[in-house]
Nucleic acid binder design. Structure first.
Lengths: 240, 240
DNA sequence: GCCTGAAGTTGAACGCGTTCAAGACAGGTC
DNA sequence: GACCTGTCTTGAACGCGTTCAACTTCAGGC
């Protein structure tokens, strides 16, 4: 019953108890216990200073048992990843329901992401280190991450479709992915941002969003059509 | 006589031998030996599978001795970093002497970088992982890396000054750094690029350079002046 | 009630990066 | 020669992430 995929979607091999209740199997409880303990310790001591032995001890299980549920220490992070993703969507929901202006929607979604991430800034940095490794399944570009990645891209598709913005029809289908890429850029900036409360990242968002907004609108302009087409063709080339 | 800075510039505390010759002190030889051995093993087995014990054994010294010269296994990479930097500059030199067209100069310099990096693609990936950590002195954004970073930015200043391109005067002073940032983006893409011979990265360069060229030239256009100014003002904000 | 096999659990052991107290080796001074 | 003093060198030891053979638990079939 190992769960390796980054989705964390529990696809429950449930031992159908009498009623259709919570249905936590024997191991599921241990799994949750280890996970909660790990998350707590990560927040308290940081990722590097939290040892697997400490997690196991605090959770009251053997080290090997933690490895029965999680392939590695890094895989514990996957759960953090998935959680953040869900929280992000929830935090972005009100903005998406309220606003119709493209720039306002984009800014809202980006700020929501930073809101959700801020409490974990310190240990998210180390998390980022392992995510950066190209061979790691934790990398946002890896096939294993395609689930959360597509979910995130969908979010930016929603930013676009729910807005009143008029976009060059050739550019439009690629824009959600480009916006996601910009989002990755913001996260990268945020990770390196040491200003108090990551204020600089907020400034980046507030400065870059109007810029993106302007460029998107200009993409339909005669002088810029060639540029737009060049961008689109480059995207096509890189996709094969 | 430890050398911690990423510059690797030997600032020689030379025990002035009779003549002003090579001046390799006792330890300097050992240092070089360990370094060469490490580089060879990294290339042969990859970074992760090369142990400090193996490096020491192959170099014929004790483990602790390696740590006398290099703070950590990661610090061995710094040397690789510095070397690549120098090779890059050398490889770019002919292009900078020959070409005067901005796009040609930029493309030449970027291709030179990939030429130099290509042989080490496999282990550069793991190297990248440690460089990505924000707290690491190996990060290209860290204060410790300011030496090589500025050297690289200077290279792009040279790309610009030696070219016939006319650039918006407000944008000009920031352009070298922006080009360096684009270069970082190319490297990021290259690290993740699994296509044979990293052909995709070549396509990215060939596609993106004309785009950048066009945008730089358009920056002086009346319709785009506001955009240019917005970019410049954003840069100023983020610098404080 | 007993058996079977899958699920869950254990902790000693391995290999790794790294540290450090102890020693070996100069070159200079008297 | 004896002596220092700073540079260099050693290898056992530490703490870590991870593995694995052995063990326990428990539901279901007979």
């Amino acid at each position: 019953m190992r769960r390796d995929t980054v989705t964390g979607m529990t696809d429950q091999t449930v031992p159908t108890t009498a009623a259709g209740e919570a249905a936590t199997s024997r191991g599921e409880q241990t799994r949750q216990l280890i996970l909660e303990t790990a998350m707590r310790l990560f927040r308290e001591r940081g990722y590097a200073r939290t040892t697997m032995r400490a997690i196991a001890a605090e959770a009251g299980v053997a080290v090997g048992n933690a490895y029965y549920y999680f392939q590695s220490k890094e895989h514990l992070i996957q759960e953090f990843y998935a959680r953040t993703e869900r929280e992000h969507r929830t935090a972005a929901q009100p903005v998406l329901e309220r606003e119709t202006d493209f720039a306002a929607r984009l800014a809202g979604v980006l700020h929501a992401a930073i809101d959700v991430l801020t409490p974990s800034h310190d240990f998210a940095a180390t998390f980022f280190k392992t995510a950066a490794e190209p061979t790691s399944p934790l990398s946002p570009f890896s096939p294993e991450s395609s689930g959360p990645r597509n979910a995130a891209i969908d979010l930016y598709a929603e930013v676009l479709t729910g807005s009143t913005a008029k976009v060059d029809p050739e550019l439009r289908p690629h824009l959600p992915e480009l916006l996601w890429l910009a989002y990755m850029g913001v996260v990268l900036f945020w990770v390196y941002d040491r200003s108090p409360g990551q204020a600089r990242t907020r400034q980046l968002i507030d400065g870059a969003v109007p810029l993106v907004d302007r460029l998107v609108k200009l993409s339909r302009l005669r002088v810029l059509r060639p540029v737009t087409q060049q961008v689109v063709s480059l995207i096509h080339t890189l996709r094969h």
